[in-house]
Design a protein around this nucleic acid. Structure first.
Lengths: 207, 207
DNA sequence: ACATAATGCGAGCTATAGCTCATATTGTCT
DNA sequence: AGACAATATGAGCTATAGCTCGCATTATGT
């Protein structure tokens, strides 16, 4: 296996000024990745676009990969928060309502910044953040599983861990693929149909 | 958008000897990608491992990306053939039998060489082969849709194009994710359960 | 105000990746 | 056998990416 470069930030910035620098670097990295692709995202270019010197860049991030990883992590934090909120929101709703809402939220989340989402998905293997993604998914599985446990009376007999895997993976794939490769399915009228179908898929499976 | 390097082969090799050269190059690229990762796959290294001079490499492939694209394409051809065969095989089977068989085949296909499969999945964005993947999926959708048309009497009223999208995307995601990230679900005993669940998901949705 | 720490700077070094081209070898055809 | 095309070779050029380091500037605390 290839040895990966370090991807953790170097210092923890304490002053206001330096936090701004760090933010600018991550933001610039994201913008360049989206607009110009990974290859154009050289450290010099990132520093330039961030309005920061190359020296400062290396004070906070030990490598280009670390910056990309920061972008990936930031995006994942945002997504996880959306998922947590959504699952808290639907905790008491009956199965079908809950699933429908979750599917809708998933589509909305993917639509916030599809280009960044695509880039993040593409860059994950490079960042050595695959394990993090594993953890990320684990949390989602666990949260959804908790919902299922609470609503066990609405379900058929089924291993809840496995069911959570099946449902979450399917919903994620459908929304992800639709947003990134099938914008035709997502016209304002068509979205509702997709939501209906995904809901039916999951609900039909669970009971 | 970033301009991508050319990814098409340069000349078409006619003699026996040169075809061997080309094969060795693609094979070496695949091996290096799997064992050492994209960064270590320099053109010099590929040529060396293929037992071919760097000059010869550039006679057939204009860039490193072209070689990676060749690996991706080759893998996709193989997968598509498996899918075509499987769908031909189940064409006359009733819904549940057909789906169960397809899910099984999908898992088997992913298991042939999981590490290569993972690498290919990771490298697709870099190769500019996303459109090809689109086409690849289009064909799969079309083939499965044809099956659905033939068995319409077993299905509820549903847009077959959309249904094909939902089913194929779900099956692909479940098998892909299970093989790459959840080997626990794929122990010899557990596979059957996964097959059952995936089958139930899809069949329940379709009727 | 001064000392000390935190942050910022950017010219320039090192390494290596991608690639070319002049030349040599091997195959094909008559 | 000779001529022409196809294929193979690898030393070495060019460009640029990643990164360091010595020094300048700005903040903090007393």
């Amino acid at each position: 296996m290839a040895r990966r470069p370090l991807t953790n930030p170097r210092k923890h910035a304490t002053q206001e000024r330096s936090r701004a620098t760090v933010d600018a670097l991550v933001e610039a990295t994201a913008r360049i990745l989206v607009k110009e692709g990974f290859d154009k995202a050289s450290t010099n270019r990132i520093a330039q676009k961030a309005g920061v010197s190359i020296g400062s860049l290396y004070q906070y991030y030990p490598s280009k990969e670390a910056l990309v990883a920061a972008v990936v992590d930031r995006h994942h934090q945002e997504l996880m928060q959306i998922i947590r909120d959504a699952l808290a929101e639907v905790a008491a709703l009956p199965l079908e309502d809950a699933v429908r809402r979750l599917v809708t939220v998933a589509i909305e989340a993917h639509r916030i910044d599809p280009r960044l989402h695509r880039v993040v998905a593409e860059q994950i293997p490079r960042t050595g953040r695959l394990e993090n993604v594993g953890a990320f998914n684990q949390e989602t599985f666990a949260l959804f599983r908790a919902y299922l446990e609470r609503h066990r009376d609405e379900l058929r007999a089924v291993d809840l861990g496995l069911a959570a895997f099946v449902c979450v993976t399917s919903i994620e794939a459908l929304t992800h693929t639709a947003v990134l490769h099938r914008s035709d399915i997502l016209s304002d009228e068509a979205v509702d149909t997709l939501v209906d179908e995904a809901t039916r898929l999951v609900v039909g499976y669970l009971r």
